[in-house]
């Protein structure tokens, strides 16, 4: 067995998740927010792999769901960056607080 307890991996991925959420909350740039979301999904993937390695009766389940999460992350990045490009073409900015068209 690998000599690392499950708790350490879980706390590591918790810290990664918290860093990602901090970035998503604090960044002004939309691309920065998208990068932070990639970090969050990455932390979830590490959790899936660790659980399937340590506690699951069928160890391939976690890897398959991690593959699904990676596919969803790729689609979200593609669509999100397309939206950013369209927004930049119309509004000439990528900063979230300058996109206040619907703010009253």
């Amino acid at each position: 067995m690998i000599g690392i307890p499950l708790t350490h991996i879980l706390i590591f991925s918790l810290l990664l998740f918290a860093i990602g959420i901090y970035g998503a909350l604090v960044r002004r740039n939309i691309i920065g927010i998208l990068i932070s979301i990639e970090l969050i999904l990455n932390a979830a993937n590490i959790n899936l792999i660790a659980f399937s390695k340590y506690t699951s009766p069928s160890p391939e389940m976690g890897q398959i769901f991690a593959i699904f999460v990676i596919a969803i992350a790729a689609t979200s990045a593609a669509v999100g960056l397309a939206i950013v490009l369209a927004l930049y073409r119309v509004r000439k900015t990528v900063y979230t607080d300058e996109v206040n068209l619907l703010k009253w």
Binding site: I31, L34, Q63, L81
Partner: peptide
């Protein structure tokens, strides 16, 4: 992932994330 014995997933991670998503982000 390699340390957790998930070799295939490590390859997928490098191909899809580092190869595709980061390239897309840099383009944007």
């Amino acid at each position: 992932y390699l340390g957790l014995r998930a070799d295939f997933l490590a390859g997928i991670q490098i191909l899809l994330y580092v190869g595709a998503v980061v390239t897309l982000v840099i383009f944007a």
